[in-house]
């Protein structure tokens, strides 16, 4: 498997090649890639992809990862059922 074929974001099935090509087009911030590709917006909320994307951005910009903006973490952080939010109780099925 070629490195570029690696799936970086499993929620949205985004490969390393796609990440790199959008960075090359000039989108050099995590927030921009998030808005364009939905990376970090899926069920895992960036747990799987954020570090890899920040590493790619660091490589492209020469900035250390610690200097990059990792985007905003939003509630409820881990997906929970709408019924639990509304009524405070788990519902068995859809």
């Amino acid at each position: 498997m070629k490195e570029n074929d690696v799936v970086v974001c499993r929620c949205e099935e985004i490969t390393l090649e796609e990440i790199r090509s959008w960075i090359d087009k000039g989108y050099k911030h995590f927030d921009e890639l998030k808005r364009i590709l939905r990376v970090g917006m899926g069920p895992c909320q960036g747990r799987g992809c954020r570090d890899i994307i920040l590493r790619e951005l660091s490589r492209a910009t020469g900035e250390p990862i610690s200097a990059l903006d990792p985007g905003t973490i939003r509630p409820p952080v881990k997906p929970i059922k709408a019924g639990l939010c509304a009524y405070g109780e788990e519902v068995a099925s859809k």
């Binding site: 917006m41 939003r74 509630p75 409820p76 997906p79 709408a82 939010c85 099925s93």
Partner: peptide, 25 residues
């Protein structure tokens, strides 16, 4: 926000109660 909006929306479209909320903004 989360509690208020889900209560209000599920009242109109109840079958979404089992759908997972991913994030708010």
């Amino acid at each position: 926000f989360l509690e208020g909006v889900t209560k209000s929306v599920l009242q109109r479209i109840p079958f979404l109660k089992g759908v997972r909320i991913v994030h708010q903004w």
